[in-house]
């Protein structure tokens, strides 16, 4: 009751201008991490290495945008890694086994991903299967389908230009795949910030019943969110195929956990209603820089796993503490 009288005297801060939301902590962490690595290694703070980091986060970054939407509405999507593999295999099969033009094969692969997302969305909204369960089911189904397409075999031998999408740095710094990631980031950011559809996701995540009574079509929005997440996973699969110059059905195992970690490090709450693309980008960068930095430092692979786990726990705990105090 006191707070009513006092109000909050501070005007909206600069951070909200960039809609960082709860991500100021992770941003500080990221900057500290970069500062530390710049001093600790000769090779971290070089244009070449930073461009490598951008390369290395493309797949995670694209998937994390979709996951941000899902987590914003209070959902979870465990199927992203499997859908990534399914999309890859559909593309590889259509282009190399059936001889279809690669661009067309890519479009069809994205449609296949969308179909998988639509199925999970419908399971959640029409049959009231919890998101955790329906995406868990899709994770298994999509992985199985990806394996069935070639009976578990990899496919290689794509046209030369395809691999080059992930290699040639236009203007000295921008590969097509990195550019694609930046476009996805920008589109996601604008969507959440400046469109009614994006604002509605916050309302749904904040309280579904409030959103429904406010006239928001919660079911349709939910289905569209899962479709978007699936399509972006499919797109990430195409990017990964370009990066590896091959496709294999075992790709993307456990990527869902990396993706969720990135979104959560970025300040989103798993109960929905808070989070944003700016935070997610920071989360993706934290994971990317950390992996890269630990390799550069020559930290042993087993120690790396420990460090990454500790960082995830610290990032989220710090955010929760900050909220309690604030």
């Amino acid at each position: 009751m006191i707070s009513v009288a006092r109000g909050r005297t501070s005007s909206p801060s600069v951070s909200s201008l960039f809609s960082l939301g709860g991500a100021t902590g992770p941003l500080i962490g990221l900057l500290l991490l970069c500062a530390f690595l710049s001093f600790a290694t000769d090779s971290f703070f070089t244009a070449r290495n930073l461009l490598n980091v951008l390369d290395q986060i493309t797949v995670l970054g694209i998937m994390a945008v979709g996951m941000t939407f899902v987590i914003l509405i209070g959902g979870i999507d465990l199927s992203v890694g499997s859908i990534l593999a399914l999309s890859m295999m559909v593309m590889g099969y259509l282009s190399n086994e059936l001889g279809m033009a690669l661009p067309l094969a890519i479009v069809i692969a994205l449609f296949a991903s969308a179909a998988a997302g639509a199925v999970t969305g419908l399971l959640i909204t029409e049959f009231s299967v919890p998101a955790f369960i329906s995406t868990l089911a899709m994770m298994s189904v999509a992985r199985g389908l990806a394996n069935m397409i070639t009976d578990g075999q990899q496919i290689v031998g794509f046209p030369g230009w395809f691999n080059l999408l992930a290699i040639i740095r236009h203007g000295g710094f921008l590969t097509v795949t990195v550019g694609l990631m930046l476009i996805v980031f920008a589109a996601g950011w604008i969507f959440l910030r400046n469109t009614t559809g994006g604002r509605c996701l916050y309302a749904i995540g904040g309280n579904q019943e409030v959103a429904r009574l406010a006239g928001i079509n919660v079911r349709l929005s939910t289905i569209l969110v899962y479709i978007t997440s699936a399509v972006l996973s499919g797109l990430a699969g195409i990017v990964l195929a370009a990066r590896l110059d091959s496709v294999q059905p075992s790709s993307g195992v456990s990527y869902e956990l990396d993706t969720i970690a990135a979104v959560v490090i970025g300040g989103a709450s798993l109960s929905g209603g808070t989070g944003g693309i700016a935070g997610t980008v920071i989360g993706v960068l934290v994971i990317g820089v950390l992996r890269n930095g630990l390799n550069l430092l020559g930290v042993s692979p087993f120690t790396q796993q420990v460090v990454i786990g500790v960082v995830i726990a610290l990032a989220v705990a710090a955010e929760v503490l900050k909220k309690k105090k604030g």
Partner: peptide, 23 residues
């Protein structure tokens, strides 16, 4: 300098990039 891909070829590409960065 040792890196472990944990069975994932995408991770391995990134790691080899990092190794090459270190000359």
């Amino acid at each position: 300098i040792i890196v472990d891909a944990k069975g994932d070829s995408a991770t391995q590409v990134s790691q080899v990039q990092d190794l090459l960065t270190q000359d």
